[in-house]
């Protein structure tokens, strides 16, 4: 799970999305095709090549008030068309910590 903070070159190997954190509260959001942000991965715009990814990222970076720290993250598309996180890091960002939080232990 190489940190996306080290993401320097835009090179994607499969379907990807742009994800970030919403500015006012920090929650995980995804860039939508409607040039907005959504907390639902299912509403994310999917890019499939580097040019598309670069364009979506540039548009996301320009929306500095809406969300911060945008980067390209891999996703998997299920047989039913459902969008799923492409790695453990993104799985954790989407579904939360893999541990019980103290109140639950």
């Amino acid at each position: 799970m190489t940190s996306p903070l080290e993401q320097k070159k835009i090179k994607i190997a499969g379907p990807s999305v742009v994800t970030a954190n919403r500015t006012w509260d920090g929650i995980v959001v995804y860039r939508t095709a409607a040039k907005g942000w959504s907390a639902e991965l299912s509403e994310a715009a999917i890019v499939r090549n580097s040019d598309e990814a670069r364009a979506l990222l540039a548009e996301s970076i320009a929306d500095d008030v809406g969300a911060i720290g945008p980067y390209i993250a891999p996703v998997q598309i299920g047989e039913d068309g459902k969008i799923l996180p492409g790695n453990l890091r993104e799985q954790i960002r989407r579904t939360g910590v893999t541990i019980g939080q103290p109140a639950q232990v």
């Binding site: 799970m1 940190s3 996306p4 720290g69 890091r89 954790i92 910590v97 893999t98």
Partner: peptide
């Protein structure tokens, strides 16, 4: 990796 944006792997589990 459960919390940290720099992490590569989980520690707490």
């Amino acid at each position: 990796l459960d919390y940290c944006s720099l992490a590569n792997a989980r520690s707490i589990p």
